[in-house]
Design a protein around this nucleic acid. Structure first.
Length: 876
RNA sequence: GGGAGCUUAGCUCAGCUGGUUCAGAGCAUCUGCCUUACAAGCAGAGGGUCACUGGUUCGAACCCAGUAGUUCCCA
């Protein structure tokens, strides 16, 4: 059989993914095994796969595949969320292209278009996950607006309303003038920007020429001012008590009020108060009973109440009014200033604080168990540093604005009669009965998308949990899979989503939704910028997969992703991943090429197999431990080194048969069998990271039965590792490296055979497995000598002293310098050890073991120096 | 403005309760090799006053205080 020299992932990956699907290896149904469950953070239905998804889902797949190998009933539930704002915006844009205005459609017509859009484009991202190898149970694919899940959302709204946790009220909300909806506090991104601070003077009412100067970054809101506020202790303004001033342009008389809220040092110490357009001003307004004049309409343009610039955008007006005030003589000065401005997470529009009627969920009581159970470790955040952030947020949590002025989403089940009387119930019929009139109107708004996805870990298994029947015990799925095990997500949605899922878990299942929350880093480009579509600095993951193979990209992603740390992504990591694929592929080619013989197993091969067995067990234990701590990138690195260094570079080289007359000699059957067994084991350990290539090699390395696939194989068990053997191998490998070093330094070809002598009186060389050293160091002999060898290069490994004799004369001076340097180093070291040991306080305070160690260091250094000095003397 | 974290080799990161031959790994770099598994490779090597300053200690990358830089969260 001819095996290509380089591994080609393309054909292999499609083939195996189809095979896994065909045999339903990803499918999970409750049984007697231990469950291992992950629910996917549902990607946005409008989304296409980006590097963040790539990282996130690779980690989930690694965890799921390993659990599956460990014999657990692994269930990874996929799905998408309906992303109300983003999707509605997409659909509106699409309709616009077709010449249709949203405002010309009825709600039902619009939703019909939206659903069509969803059917057409909504599945793209899930298809892309297949390319990556994601082993989700696709039969369980959920969507937050699926009928049963939507019903669950409505049930929850009604339930919380009935419990008095949901209320409706006029509040200052974060208004997105582009999306034309309120957004929650968490959806506002504050950014520092360069602004101007305008100093504007207002005339004191009834005075000839007395003024009060305020400072503002938003002069366009002057038209809505209903007071000017100063600090009661401010000497500059004490005389204005009881006075009023005149708002320019609109010529409105407003009071000068006094409040300790004011920072005297900022600006002039006098604050203009616009209760309709600033949350702090709003609070002042409530306190001082001020008039509220809403001068900015929902679309960010000036309303009729403003009286000027009606219909013009707030930012245009900012420039115009500054100019007009200047002309009227009201501008005192203008300064440059840096201030924070809120932007909508969804549309990037500048958020406008706006008073409006919204629905809120009270957070104080429902959030209690969610705080408690993270602080006490019942739910673990990985890395732990996020507990601080989480705690801080939960302790200062605000009520959650859950209504959105959109059509795409679950419509709020609140009904009003013509007088505005409100009932909350599931159907119009119920509402009619309760309100006692046919004339009922349902609330126009929908619920925040997170108000769906906070139920996700429950609703994907059993949406009926939220139903009215309080005695409902749950279906087989929820009782088996819940609580789920791990959640893998980005820290940016810790509050949006994670915290709220925990709240819902305790509220509706009296149990946590998951045990571990693994928070990944943010994928950044080389310059440290977050990868985003708008910056165009993100590679297309699908292109990367084409180029390096899914296995290569998976490895590449994980190599640079310690938990919770951002990862500055670079394609070269994928290259490293691809190279790793190729390495294991070629190891496979080598082994596959061998023919076997019935000859007895040579001693060297026996030792080699025993060593690798020990090494494998030692490393597997480390790898298991790293997994248990969710140190995934380190588990990968340990796996990488086990495969590349230990298996390929050492083990295979040790047992590799010689090439004679253009043909490999056969290998003995015992060693061959052991090697295949090792190969299978390392493939299993690699499989979570590199599912495709491991499945391919697994299928080729041995005759397999139908459905005998690595994806459902068993994770190897750790057996005791022979510590002595491992220690001895350290000496062997160091010896081989020293000989190779001699070659390199002296410019001797690797093909030229050398001799090696060990200075020893005893027979301890036997333990050094001479055959292996002879083979890997390319020696013609390896012997014991009682005396030093003339004209040779010497080196030491531990307490062993070696000689490599030379036919040609060696440069004595060079050797002397080298040995002297080494003596010097060892003497310096010895000195530091002796200094420690002669320090009374050290001897008194240090632990006995530590002192023992120091004494051993002393003895070792002394004997080494002695040996080196003898070598030096022998050089004359 | 308040809070949290980070700063170790050119890059990305390890370094457990302070104590094994004067800090480890991968990549990158340099040198030599196209040695019939792999040049997407092999063999070897170099590279760090552990951000800075001070303190505690017999002993500090690790503990404490301060300074600087940086990231994130909240307002």
């Amino acid at each position: 059989m001819e095996i290509p020299k380089t591994y080609d992932p393309r054909a292999v990956e499609n083939k195996w993914y189809a095979h896994w699907l065909k045999h339903k290896f990803f499918k999970s149904t409750p049984d007697e095994r231990e469950p291992y469950t992950i629910v996917i953070p549902p990607p946005n239905v409008t989304g296409v796969l980006h590097m963040g998804h790539m990282l996130n889902n690779t980690i989930q797949d690694v965890l799921i595949r390993r659990a599956r190998l460990q014999g657990k009933n692994a269930c990874w539930v996929p799905g998408t969320d309906h992303a109300s704002i983003a999707t509605e915006a997409k659909v509106v844009a699409m309709l616009k292209e077709q010449g249709i205005n949203k405002t010309d459609l009825t709600r039902e017509e619009f939703l019909e278009h939206a659903w069509k859009w969803k059917e057409k484009y909504g599945g793209i991202i899930l298809k892309q996950l297949e390319k990556l190898g994601a082993s989700c149970d696709w039969d369980r694919t959920s969507f937050t607006m699926d009928e049963p899940l939507s019903e669950a959302v409505i049930d929850v709204f009604i339930d919380l309303y009935n419990k008095g946790q949901i209320y409706r009220g006029v509040r200052m909300v974060n208004w997105d003038p582009q999306g034309l909806t309120a957004v929650s506090d968490e959806e506002v991104i504050h950014k520092e920007v360069n602004s101007k601070l305008y100093y504007v003077r207002y005339k004191i009412e009834g005075s000839a020429d007395e003024w009060i100067t305020i400072a503002t970054t938003r002069p366009e809101t002057i038209l809505g001012d209903t007071a000017v506020c100063v600090h009661p202790d401010d000497e500059r303004y004490k005389h204005l008590k009881g006075k009023r001033c005149i708002i320019p342009m609109v010529n409105r008389s407003v009071p000068v009020i006094f409040d300790e809220y004011i920072t005297m040092e900022f600006g002039t110490g006098a604050l203009k108060v616009t209760p309709a357009h600033d949350i702090n001003d709003y609070n002042l307004g409530v306190k001082h009973n001020l008039e509220i004049i809403d001068t900015i309409a929902a679309d960010g343009k000036m309303s009729a109440a403003a009286k000027f610039y009606i219909g013009e955008d707030r930012f245009t007006v900012r420039k115009k009014i500054a100019k007009d005030l200047e002309e009227l003589g009201h501008i005192v000065k203008v300064e440059d200033i840096k201030n924070k401005v809120g932007y909508s997470e969804r549309t990037s529009a500048v958020i406008e604080p706006k008073l409006s009627m919204q629905w809120f969920l009270k957070m104080d009581t429902v959030s209690k168990p969610a705080l408690e159970n993270v602080v006490n470790g019942e739910i673990k955040l990985i890395p732990e540093k996020f507990i601080n952030t989480y705690k801080h947020w939960m302790e200062n949590v605000h009520d959650w604005c859950i209504s959105r002025q959109l059509w795409w989403g679950q419509r709020i089940p609140a009904w009003y009669d013509e007088k505005g009387k409100t009932v909350v119930c599931k159907t119009r019929e119920e509402a009619i009965a309760k309100l006692g009139t046919q004339d009922v109107r349902q609330d126009e708004d929908v619920l925040d998308t997170w108000f769906s996805s906070w139920l996700w870990p429950i609703s994907v298994f059993d949406p009926k949990v939220f139903g009215a029947d309080k005695n409902y015990k749950g279906n087989a799925d929820i009782n088996y899979y819940y609580p789920t095990n791990d959640l893998v997500t980005a820290p940016e949605i810790l509050f949006f989503w994670v915290a709220r899922m925990i709240i819902a878990g305790y509220e509706y299942k009296e149990a946590k939704p998951f045990t571990n929350v693994y928070l990944t880093g943010i994928v950044r480009d080389k310059q440290g910028r977050k990868m985003s579509k708008s910056l165009g600095n993100s590679p297309d993951p699908i292109d990367l997969i084409e180029k390096y193979g899914a296995d290569g990209v998976r490895v590449g992603m994980l190599l640079c992703s310690p938990a919770g740390n951002d990862l500055p992504f670079d394609e070269s990591y994928c290259e490293q991943g691809r190279n790793f694929s190729n390495k294991i592929w070629n190891a496979f080619r080598l082994v596959k090429m061998w023919e076997t013989s019935s000859a007895a197993q040579p001693q060297a091969n026996k030792v080699a197999t025993e060593w690798f067995e020990a090494r494998f067990n030692e490393q597997l234990e480390i790898i298991n431990d790293l997994y248990s701590k969710y140190r995934i990138s380190e588990a990968l690195m340990a796996t990488y080194k086990l495969v590349w260094d230990d298996f390929c570079a050492w083990y295979l080289e040790m047992i590799k048969p010689e090439f004679v007359d253009g043909k490999s000699l056969p290998i003995d059957q015992t060693t061959y069998d052991a090697t295949i067994n090792f190969f299978e084991k390392i493939l299993k350990v690699m499989h979570p990271f590199m599912p495709f290539i491991t499945e391919e090699i697994w299928s080729l390395i041995k005759d397999r039965k139908e459905k005998e696939n690595i994806i459902i194989a068993e994770w190897p068990e750790v057996k005791a590792a022979d510590k002595n053997l491992l220690a001895m191998f350290e000496v062997i490998s160091a010896t081989i490296a020293e000989v190779r070093n001699v070659r390199n330094n002296k410019g001797i070809s690797p093909k030229e055979k050398l001799s090696l002598y060990l200075k020893s009186k005893s027979e301890d060389k036997e333990n050094l497995f001479d055959e292996i050293i002879i083979k890997l160091a390319n020696l013609d002999k390896f012997e014991i000598t009682e005396n030093k060898i003339e004209n040779s290069i010497s080196f030491m490994v531990k307490h062993f002293e070696f000689y490599v004799p030379f036919l040609s004369a060696i440069n004595i001076n060079e050797e002397k310098t080298r040995i002297n340097k080494e003596i010097e180093y060892n003497k310096g070291f010895l000195q530091s050890v002796e200094k420690k040991l002669s320090n009374e306080k050290f001897v008194q305070n240090a632990k006995a073991e530590v002192i023992e160690i120091e004494k051993k260091k002393q003895a070792d250094a002394e004997s080494k120096i002695k040996a080196l000095e003898e070598q030096l003397a022998s050089l004359g």
